[in-house]
Amino acid sequence: MIAATYPNDDARWDAMRAKDRAAEGVFYIGVRTTGVYCVASCGGRPLRQNVAFYATREDARAAGLRACLRCKPDLNRETLRWAVGETSLGLALVARSEAGLRLLTLGDDAEALRHDLEKRFEHARIVSDPEGLAADLKAVADLVDHPGQALDLPIDAQGTELQKAVWAALREIPAGRTASYADIARAIGQPTAARAVAQACGANPLAVITPCHRVVRADGGLSGYRWGVERKRALLAREPA
């Protein structure tokens, strides 16, 4: 049975037209003219009369359809719950997997933050859950106010081995202290990898939690910051010396 969230074909058609990421894996769309089945967020635009809905991939295949090469409906999609909240430095978006926080980004526009989330995790089921993530958002807002404090939330940052090593080294920088890219490169045992360290800092998915704002140029000047140099300056100013 198709989930009650999309109780009829009209609701499923509306979800498809909206490219609803929360509908991925809840039902599948069969397109008679192309002979494929898709998830709701697929970029295709079939006509209504050419569409049928299926509760499972197996049902779609039994109807003689094959998986769409564009949206890859046969992938096992994990679910990420997300929400946006206010902080003293603008908006924060958090996204959580079953294992912990996967993403924390900062910005000024909720829609832009959501688009960034969807671009980062294009094959995940993205479900808005502001009520369920209210405690996470409060903890993040408190952390932005006091970036030197410990955060008692599980994290689930995904990256390459080098990126994970850099992010772990960043979390070892004491509050109120800074380090250069070269310092971090030496800390992870790759003293010639300063440029790769800079790239890993730019790819950091957990703003403030993994404190890439504590990385500065070799001369002590502020370097770039994915979420804005003014936020970086403010975070550093809030940390105890």
Results as ranks from 00 to 15, higher is better:
L103R: 08
L103T: 11
L103V: 15
L104G: 00
T105K: 13
L106E: 06
L106D: 04
L106A: 03
G107N: 03
G107L: 04
D108G: 08
D109I: 09
D109C: 09
D109L: 11
E111S: 15
E111Y: 12
L113K: 08
L113C: 15
R114V: 12
L117W: 03
E118C: 13
K119P: 03
R120F: 09
R120V: 09
F121H: 14
E122I: 11
E122D: 09
E122N: 07
H123A: 11
A124D: 06
A124V: 00
R125T: 07
I126W: 03
V127M: 03
V127N: 07
P130K: 09
E131C: 03
G132H: 15
L133W: 09
D136G: 08
L137N: 09
A139D: 11
A141P: 02
D142W: 06
L143V: 02
L143Y: 04
L143P: 05
V144W: 02
V144Y: 05
H146N: 13
P147Y: 12
A150C: 00
L151T: 12
D152Q: 13
L153H: 08
L153M: 13
L153W: 07
I155Q: 13
I155K: 07
D156H: 14
G159H: 05
G159S: 02
T160D: 03
E161V: 15
E161W: 02
Q163H: 10
Q163I: 06
A165F: 05
V166R: 02
W167L: 02
A168Q: 14
A169G: 04
L170C: 11
L170A: 06
L170E: 12
L170I: 06
E172K: 13
E172W: 00
I173W: 01
A175R: 11
R177K: 13
R177C: 04
T178K: 00
T178H: 00
A179R: 13
A179W: 05
A179E: 05
A179Q: 03
Y181N: 10
Y181R: 14
A185P: 05
G189V: 06
Q190K: 14
Q190G: 00
T192S: 15
A193K: 12
A194K: 12
R195T: 14
A198Q: 15
A200C: 05
C201R: 04
C201T: 03
C201G: 07
L206Q: 08
L206C: 06
L206T: 03
A207L: 08
A207T: 04
V208A: 00
V208M: 00
V208S: 00
I209N: 01
T210M: 00
P211S: 04
C212G: 15
C212K: 13
H213F: 14
R214A: 04
V215S: 04
R217C: 12
R217E: 15
D219S: 05
G220Y: 06
G221E: 14
G221I: 01
L222T: 01
Y225F: 12
Y225H: 15
R226D: 10
R226K: 13
R226V: 06
R226S: 10
R226E: 14
W227A: 01
G228T: 01
E230V: 12
E230W: 08
